[in-house]
C-alpha cells in the first residue's frame, strides 16, 4: 500500500486530537503507512477571506513540501482539503499572483511542479483501501445503529475542484458507514453546512445552522451524526456542548462521532485508545450497538 504525507492542519493537533489518533489507528490496521512532515504549515483556508496571496502561498508551500518528499497527501480536514485542491487548480493557471507565489517559494528553496495528489482520508479508505478490505477487518459489526452521515461542504463542492464524489447525491461516506454494519439514514439537511465557518463571526447564525442540522438528523432517526472534519466535529461536539451549557440543558440533541472512531470500534480496536472519551459529548453508548461475529 502507498505511503502518504499526513496533513493534519491546525485544528486537529490541538482541538480534535482523537481524530488524529483514531485515523492513524485504523489506517495502520488497513496497511496504509503515513509520514509526518513537520514543516507543513496552515493550508491557507482561514486566509481566503482576507488575502489571496497568503492563502495561495501557504497552500502551495505544503504541496511543494509533499512533492519534495515524493508523497501524495492524505488530508483529514475538509477545509484543508478544499483549500489545497483550490490552490492546485489555481496554480495550473498563469497569472501575476501565481508568479509571485513561485518567487516567494523559491526564496524558501522550494518549487512546485504540480506533481502531487491531494486525497481526503475518506477517499483513501474508499478508493485505495477499498470496501472489501475494510469489510474483512470488521470484527464487531454494529446492529441497529442509525448514523446520519455528514459530508462537509469543502470536500463536496465546488465538485469541479474537489472531485470527491457526486455533489448532489454523494454515497461515499454512506458506503463507508454501511460497511461497519450501521445504517445510514436519509436526512434532508445532509449536504448543508455545519455552521463552523461563521463561528466567532456570527454565532447566532452559526448556532442556528448547527441546531437545524442536528434536529433534522435526529428526526430522521439517527443515533449519531458522523463527521470526518475537525471544523464540523468541533461544531457538532464542542459548540453543541457550549449551546447546552448556555441554554442550561442536559441532553444533547445528537452526539457526533468521528468516522475513524466509528470504524475503529467495529474493527475491534480499543475505544479508550480511539479517544472515545475525548469527545465533549458522551458517545460511550455506541459500544452497546457492537456485536460479536
Amino acid at each position: 500500500m502507498n505511503q502518504y504525507a499526513l496533513f493534519l492542519g491546525c485544528n486537529i493537533p490541538v482541538r480534535v486530537k482523537q481524530y488524529d489518533v483514531s485515523a492513524r489507528m485504523v489506517l495502520k490496521e488497513l496497511g496504509v503507512s503515513l509520514k509526518d512532515i513537520r514543516q507543513f504549515n496552515c493550508c491557507g483556508y482561514p486566509m481566503r477571506n482576507t488575502d489571496p496571496k497568503s492563502f495561495l502561498l501557504s497552500a502551495v508551500r505544503n504541496l511543494a513540501l509533499a512533492e519534495k518528499a515524493e508523497l501524495d497527501m492524505l488530508v483529514l480536514c475538509q477545509c484543508c482539503f478544499g483549500s489545497l485542491k483550490k490552490a492546485q487548480v489555481l496554480m495550473a493557471e498563469e497569472g501575476d499572483l501565481q508568479e509571485q507565489v513561485r518567487h516567494l517559494l523559491a526564496e524558501e528553496g522550494l518549487e512546485y511542479d504540480g506533481n502531487v495528489k491531494i486525497k481526503h482520508f475518506l477517499s483513501v479508505l474508499y478508493h485505495d483501501v477499498g470496501l472489501d478490505a475494510i469489510k474483512q477487518k470488521i470484527a464487531m459489526p454494529y446492529k441497529k445503529l442509525n448514523i446520519a452521515t455528514h459530508y462537509g461542504c469543502h470536500v463536496l463542492r465546488p465538485s469541479r475542484v474537489t472531485e470527491f464524489d457526486d455533489p448532489v447525491s454523494p454515497t461515499l461516506i454512506d458506503a463507508l458507514v454501511k460497511v461497519t454494519g450501521a445504517k445510514s439514514v436519509d436526512w434532508a439537511l445532509k449536504l448543508e453546512c455545519c455552521g463552523a465557518p461563521v463561528m466567532g463571526i456570527d454565532d447566532d447564525l452559526s448556532w442556528n445552522l448547527t441546531e437545524k442540522k442536528l434536529n433534522d438528523a435526529k428526526a430522521a432517526g439517527a443515533h449519531y451524526v458522523c463527521t470526518a472534519c475537525p471544523y464540523c466535529h468541533i461544531q457538532f461536539d464542542t459548540v453543541q456542548q457550549q449551546m447546552l451549557l448556555d441554554n442550561k440543558k442536559q441532553d444533547a440533541l445528537l452526539p457526533a462521532i468521528l468516522y475513524p472512531q466509528l470504524l475503529g470500534l467495529a474493527m475491534g480496536l480499543d475505544g479508550a485508545l480511539l479517544g472515545i472519551s475525548d469527545n465533549e459529548i458522551d458517545i460511550s453508548d455506541v459500544i452497546s450497538f457492537l456485536n460479536e461475529e
Partner: peptide, 14 residues
C-alpha cells in the same frame, strides 16, 4: 482578520 475563520477560537472562548 476578525471576519475570517481565525475567529473560531475567540468564538469558542466567548
Amino acid at each position: 482578520m476578525m471576519l475570517s475563520p481565525f475567529s473560531l477560537v475567540r468564538g469558542l472562548n466567548r
